[in-house]
């Protein structure tokens, strides 16, 4: 795997795990603020694993390997287009849910909107890295 592939895998699992932790944290804090310490205990090992994975993803196959070549750029551009489409879809869905939930004249607390946006952002990042992994996977196995 080259650096971009490794970054895509780390980013995918990092953003996916973050999304799950984020949703769990939101639900737990809704139930009781006393869960804050439990969340910290979960978050610390996660950050340590994420840091180790980032260090691993920075390792090069050879000293002459470029950080990003023309194929990597092409794959990244295509992944950005897909994740942008996903972002538009997720914003539309989240807004539709809020409107359906509260009604046309309803309102939500100001603290909820950033929470929704952060969730959409995490899911968009997950989609971006997943698209990159799929595009890299379209190449066949190494044999030389």
């Amino acid at each position: 795997m080259n650096r971009m592939q490794k970054t895509a895998w780390v980013g995918f699992f990092g953003s996916l795990t973050s999304s799950v932790l984020y949703a769990t944290a939101f639900m737990l804090l809704l139930l009781s603020p006393a869960y804050r310490r439990v969340l910290c205990l979960i978050l610390c090992p996660f950050l340590a694993v994420l840091f180790a994975a980032l260090v691993w993803s920075c390792r090069k196959q050879s000293p002459a390997e470029p950080d990003c070549d023309e194929r990597d750029s092409q794959i990244s551009r295509r992944a950005v287009i897909i994740s942008f489409a996903g972002l538009c879809f997720l914003i539309y869905i989240s807004d539709a849910i809020v409107i359906l939930w509260t009604g046309v004249g309803g309102s939500i607390p100001t603290s909820v909107l950033p929470v929704i946006h952060l969730g959409v952002g995490l899911l968009t990042a997950t989609l971006y890295y997943a698209a990159m992994i799929v595009f890299y996977g379209k190449g066949k196995k190494a044999n030389g």
């Binding site: 390997e65 070549d69 023309e70 990597d72 066949k140």
Partner: peptide
Amino acid sequence: ADKVGVTRQTIIAIEQGGYTP
């Protein structure tokens, strides 16, 4: 790959016809 300044995965993809350079 080192001589032309790309990653090994790009050379693999070109050899197998999966990527047009």
